[in-house]
């Protein structure tokens, strides 16, 4: 018995190839950010130097602040406006999406009825249809309704890619939650509002927060639908960055804006890693 046991490999042991793969992918993921940061702090960085020949702090008598960042934080770059828009739209979309999906998720997660599979497919459909096709077709409707280029229009259109994630997360939350606690509360005489706010909501809160964080993330990262429906009037961080790099070149200010556009994601990455183990996406 001992002989066989020692011949068996440790099931959780990592082999050198796997170690190499993880390391290589970490480098592939993170390394490209290095030149982005360097570029935003460079004063002169001519080809073919790997590092800038003149850093901004060597020129600080000329500009007390890195030039790129000075521009990024000045009103003319519209970064502040774009950040406010991105966060505002993200929060509104998240709350709206939650209000729409929470009741539906209870039905989908706890009730059985005919056509449920088809309904779940319909809800997943926005993920399976090309975003450009949806965006362009909707743009025509929104122009007719005078919603193109307005906050309302952009917020409505952000619901399309966020609803599938939110609905899916909340459905599985309700599935796992069951109805026992609610039944007890009802027997004890609680009314429907009390049951929801005192019993259900506290119990499903972790799942709700996970769904909200991811919805917010999808919304803040959305480019195409904002660009099509916003018609250039609504500037968010992704569209601002797009305008900066659409010519196919990246200057120091573009690098700064790209870094700013990554900030919400980095914050959420730290936040979700600490507080949430199960990602709503991963199902």
């Amino acid at each position: 018995m001992i002989g066989t046991a020692s011949k068996l490999r440790d099931i959780k042991a990592i082999n050198p190839w796997q170690r190499l793969l993880v390391l290589a992918m970490a480098v592939f993921t993170i390394a490209p950010f290095a030149p982005l940061i360097i570029q935003s702090l460079a004063f002169r960085w001519a080809w073919p130097n790997i590092l800038p020949t003149v850093w901004w702090f060597e020129q600080r008598q000329r500009s007390p602040f890195p030039l790129a960042w000075d521009y990024v934080f000045s009103p003319s770059s519209r970064v502040v406006e774009a950040t406010i828009n991105t966060l505002g739209i993200g929060i509104t979309v998240t709350l709206l999406c939650l209000v729409i999906c929470l009741p539906a998720a209870r039905v989908l997660g706890q009730r059985t009825f005919r056509g449920k599979n088809q309904l779940e497919f319909l809800i997943a459909l926005p993920l399976l249809l090309p975003e450009a096709a949806i965006g362009i077709a909707l743009l025509m409707i929104f122009i007719a309704l005078d919603l193109a280029g307005t906050y309302v229009g952009v917020i409505i259109v952000h619901l399309i890619p966020t609803i599938p994630y939110m609905a899916r997360t909340l459905t599985s939350v309700y599935q796992g939650h069951g109805t026992d606690a609610e039944d007890h509360a009802r027997v004890l005489g609680a009314n429907r509002r009390q049951i929801f706010f005192r019993v259900t909501l506290p119990m499903i809160l972790p799942g709700v927060i996970a769904g909200c964080l991811f919805t917010f993330l999808v919304s803040t990262n959305l480019f195409l639908l904002t660009f099509f429906i916003g018609q250039g009037h609504i500037v968010t961080l992704p569209t601002l960055l797009f305008a900066k790099i659409s010519g196919g070149a990246l200057d120091a200010t573009g690098a700064g804006i790209a870094l700013i556009a990554s900030v919400p994601g980095v914050i959420l990455l730290i936040f979700t890693d600490r507080f949430i183990r199960n990602y709503p996406l991963a199902e």
Binding site: F223, L237, P238
Partner: peptide, 14 residues
């Protein structure tokens, strides 16, 4: 996963 596609494009450019 957490950053916009446009950031990925900026990284490709640089």
């Amino acid at each position: 996963l957490m950053v916009p596609y446009t950031v990925g494009i900026a990284l490709a450019l640089v």
